[in-house]
Write a protein that binds this DNA or RNA. Structure first.
Lengths: 141, 141
DNA sequence: ATGAATGTTGACAAAAATAGTCGGGTATGA
DNA sequence: TCATACCCGACTATTTTTGTCAACATTCAT
């Protein structure tokens, strides 16, 4: 089980935009300096735009910026937009695939894992990352 | 982010073996009735054997059986053996890939996610599945 | 107006991973 | 010794990933 570069690049890009929030639109060329091929990043930003996570300004002096406040955008939102939804098992969406008894029991495991991981991803926002929080750890420095 | 059929088939097979624990070795042909191509399942069971999760008996009347008690085998063990380790980001194993400032900050997110998901996978054993527990939910019914 | 800067779109392609398939081995019980 | 099984490595088709490219649309500055 792994995350592809899409999700990783997507988070890099979104974090970049979060760091530069308020400084006007950031052109693709600038965002790409995080170390991602421009032409590839363009596609990912397109997905992020269609998901409502970034807005764009076309033409000269244009670029990309966050569509919402950093605390309203989660790692889960970003991964979902760039990699597509988490699919632990297609059994969860596609009914009628459990033609054997044992498999219906495993279905409940997939469901539990899927929900848990989604909750986990939703629990971290860009704001958390900006603030360098110890995610999920009770802060008490 | 998704699980491939390897992990899914692997869990099906291990759950089957858990259900038939104590009945002697189960031949590949029997296990394959969970709905997995025999020749493919053989590879997966080979990985599970090398990971120390199943033992085998060769020759006639031979087959596969759990190497340990169901409570000592977790979903995480199985997925790790069949799919390989969870790699949220290769940055976690491969140092020196964070040549840009922002990426080092995202690294902590990968680390946190990776640990959390591993803990989650390790928290469910075959015994839990046999007992149809409500994983992670406080039982009270 | 014009041109440079910039996002938009869809097609294309190389490389890797996935999901099997196959054939020949080796061990063992009846 | 034969049928039943596991063992192992090679092969292949399909899909996914990871880009690349070319043509187009929009806007700003002059």
């Amino acid at each position: 089980m792994k995350l592809s570069t899409k999700g990783k690049y997507g988070l890099y890009a979104m974090f970049y935009l979060a760091q530069h929030a308020g400084n006007g639109p950031q052109p693709l060329k600038a965002v790409a300096e995080i170390g991602v091929p421009e032409d590839y990043l363009e596609q990912l930003l397109g997905n992020l735009r269609r998901a409502g996570l970034v807005t764009t300004v076309r033409g000269a002096q244009g670029g990309y910026q966050l569509a919402k406040a950093p605390e309203e955008i989660t790692v889960g939102d970003i991964i979902d937009a760039t990699e597509g939804p988490l699919t632990i098992s297609e059994c969860l969406s596609d009914e009628g695939c459990c033609h054997r008894s044992g498999q219906c029991r495993t279905r409940r495991v997939w469901e539990y894992l899927s929900n848990s991981i989604n909750d986990l991803l939703q629990s971290i926002s860009l704001r958390d990352m900006l603030e360098q929080e110890e995610f999920g750890v009770t802060k008490e420095s």
